[in-house]
Structure formats: structure tokens, C-alpha cells
């Protein structure tokens, strides 16, 4: 458990954006793992199994508790234009180039957590879980175009925290 608890918690917390929910999900994952302890002990695929289970449990959790409000909470204009400019974050007091790497990581983690769910979910699945756009669209029951647009907007919002290249 020690070897995988950070990975399991990280996956859950980045998908949910909520520490308490992520801890509940991580607990459920390890309870499931305990039921298969004999199969997983010493298995080289244990990490992959845990990753798959935590991703599935988190997505199921999110769809179960939020599907009923999705219609109302996402009644935003989706006319294709890039609204990333509307998203602003708590800016550091110092210019982006001057903050240290640790501070930047904390800001980025916080910004990721505060992204709207419809942007954070596909963005995390793409960049952390290495899922393809098509796979994300199928998993979230969304159109391919919406997935691409949401990921692009999420990236644009996060890009404000990166140093200018």
C-alpha cells in the first residue's frame, strides 16, 4: 500500500479536484485490492490494475453524483470561440519568470483543481492517464469536438502560469 498510495490518491484528487472525495475513493480502491491480495501480491501489473480501478471508480463516482446537475450547471454558451481569456487565476505577486519552481508547481496544482470539471476531467485523462481524445470522448459520453475544445481551453487557462518561452 505504501508503494502505491500516492499514485492512487494523486489520480483520484486530480480527477475529482476534491481531497476528501479522493481519500474516500482511494480507501475503496485499497479495499478492493485487499480482496484480490493473493493475485496482486508480487504481480508486476499491480500498479496498472490499481491505476485502472482508481480511474474507473472516480469516473463512476463523478457521473453518479453529478449527472443530475450536469444539464443545469453546464448551460454555458458553447459556440466554439475560445473563452480561455475569461479564465483568470490568482496571480502571484511576482512576475511569472521570478517565482521558483516549487511555487509554480503549487500554483499549477491549485489552478488544475480549480478548473471547471468539464475541462479538468478530459485534461487530466489526456495528460496524466495518456488517453487518446477518442477514448476520452467515449468514456465521458461526449463528442470528440467537445473534448478537444475543453482540453484546449483548460490548457490555455493553465498556460498563464507557465513562464514565457
Amino acid at each position: 500500500m505504501h508503494a502505491y498510495q500516492d499514485m492512487v490518491f494523486s489520480t483520484a484528487v486530480r480527477l475529482t479536484g476534491n481531497d476528501a472525495q479522493a481519500e474516500d475513493i482511494a480507501q475503496e480502491v485499497f479495499l478492493k485490492a485487499y480482496e484480490r491480495f493473493e493475485q496482486l501480491r508480487g504481480s508486476p501489473t499491480a500498479g496498472g490494475w490499481l491505476k485502472t480501478v482508481v480511474t474507473n471508480l472516480t469516473l463512476n463516482h463523478l457521473s453518479r453524483y453529478r449527472a443530475r446537475w450536469r444539464f443545469f450547471s453546464e448551460l454555458t454558451h458553447d459556440d466554439g470561440h475560445d473563452d480561455a481569456a475569461e479564465l483568470t487565476f490568482a496571480a502571484p505577486d511576482t512576475p511569472a519568470a521570478q517565482i521558483d519552481a516549487e511555487q509554480r508547481r503549487a500554483l499549477l496544482e491549485n489552478a488544475l483543481r480549480r478548473l471547471p470539471e468539464h475541462q479538468r476531467l478530459p485534461l487530466v485523462l489526456y495528460h496524466f492517464e495518456d488517453m487518446a481524445y477518442q477514448e476520452i470522448a467515449q468514456r465521458l459520453h461526449l463528442s470528440l469536438a467537445k473534448v478537444k475544445t475543453d482540453i484546449l481551453r483548460g490548457r490555455a487557462a493553465l498556460a498563464k502560469l507557465l513562464p514565457q518561452s
Binding site: M1, H2, Q5, D6, M7, V8, F9, S10, V13, R14, D19, E23, A26, Q27, F30, L31, Y34, A101, R105, L108, E109, L112, H127, F128, L152, R155, A156, L158, A159, L161, L162, S165
Partner: peptide, 26 residues
């Protein structure tokens, strides 16, 4: 370019540390 930079930055985040209470809860 944006995708590459975001990918690098996100992977640079590493893993979040699990709460100390997780193991005792399990």
C-alpha cells in the same frame, strides 16, 4: 507547442502525497 509545454509542466508536478490518515482508515 502549448500541448507540449502543458504536458511537461503537468508531468513535472509529480504525485500528490496521500493523507497520513488513508492507511489507518483502510
Amino acid at each position: 507547442e502549448l500541448e507540449r509545454r502543458i504536458d511537461d509542466a503537468l508531468h513535472d508536478l509529480g504525485q500528490r502525497r496521500a493523507p497520513g490518515t488513508l492507511e489507518s482508515r483502510v
